[in-house]
């Protein structure tokens, strides 16, 4: 964050925390929050895909990534972690609150589902409700962070319906990729048609993610002043290299080419999964770092002088 803060002041038009009128970066949601978002979306994604394919290792992995990883990074971000439970209080108006309810349903009923599948200790009457409520919670978790960002009118880059869409697509893509990496040998041996279906779904999701990122950049380029600054940061300034090479190149194009032209085996699948997850994590971090607030107009602009 220190380097970013320095550039914040040095970049033309950016004023940092000085008493000048100009562009300011959002500075309160940083890497721990981005990591928590990444864990939430990828964990919920692998859980959803695994539940639909009845793939128990993926279900457990999804619960661990969200239940442990997301919780840890959220708590490390919070100013007052001991009071974090209070975030459940306003589901009527706050997406953070709705998301926390989603996590509670997802992890709570997900664990009941795992206990029922592995040990058979759950009463018959609870098995189906646990399955569906856990799945419903995971669906909320995979999209709510996008909604939380898109509701920020302050940051024009985020203030778009593409945010929840990218959350959902990236979450499902991560989920499908992790299921493939964990179960490709198993699927190859038992059900080749299911393997083909999952790889096709993975390719479709990769194209959809790629198109969503391009749409996001297009919207930012033609958006408000702050959004245009975000666009420049991501495409031609100090965030451009990690964004263009990491998020777009390694995160979408490389795995797509691998999945299209390389033979389906464990090494190819693992490489594609790692590059997709790397690109997704970088996307989350860079979208936070590129969050720019529109400048408040100077009297000269405001009164047309």
């Amino acid at each position: 964050m220190a380097n970013i803060s320095l550039k914040n002041v040095l970049r033309p038009g950016f004023v940092g925390r000085t008493f000048k009128s100009g562009y300011r970066f959002q500075r309160y949601w940083d890497t721990p929050m981005a990591t928590a978002f990444f864990c939430g979306e990828s964990g919920a994604g692998v859980f959803i895909v695994s539940m639909l394919l009845n793939f128990m290792p993926g279900v457990i992995l999804g619960l661990l990534i969200t239940g442990v990883g997301k919780t840890f990074f959220h708590l490390s971000h919070m100013g007052v972690p001991s009071k974090s439970w209070r975030a459940i209080l306003r589901p009527d108006r706050s997406w953070i609150s709705r998301g926390l309810w989603g996590i509670i349903f997802f992890v709570g009923f997900g664990v009941i589902h795992v206990i029922s599948e592995l040990f058979g200790l759950v009463p018959e009457v609870l098995i189906k409700p646990a399955y569906f409520l856990g799945l419903a919670g995971a669906i909320v978790v995979v999209v709510y962070q996008g909604f939380a960002m898109s509701h920020s009118t302050a940051i024009s880059l985020w203030n778009t319906g593409l945010m929840p869409l990218s959350s959902m697509l990236y979450g499902l893509l991560s989920g499908v990729s992790m299921v493939m990496a964990l179960g490709v040998l198993d699927l190859y041996a038992t059900d080749e048609s299911q393997l083909l279906m999952v790889t096709l779904f993975q390719k479709i999701l990769l194209v959809a993610v790629f198109m969503t990122i391009l749409s996001l950049l297009h919207g930012a380029k033609h958006g408000s002043k702050g959004a245009r600054q975000s666009y420049e940061l991501l495409t031609s300034d100090f965030l451009a290299r990690p964004f263009l090479i990491g998020v777009i190149g390694i995160g979408t194009i490389m795995p797509f080419l691998l999945l299209m032209f390389a033979p389906v085996n464990f090494l190819t699948t693992l490489t594609a999964t790692v590059s997709i997850l790397f690109g997704f994590y970088l996307y989350r971090v860079l979208i936070f770092k590129a969050g720019v607030m529109d400048p408040i107009l100077t009297p000269a602009d405001m009164f047309g002088k």
Binding site: G79, S152, W158
Partner: peptide, 9 residues
Amino acid sequence: IGCGSCAVA
């Protein structure tokens, strides 16, 4: 709770 939602909003 110090989540920062207000600051980014």
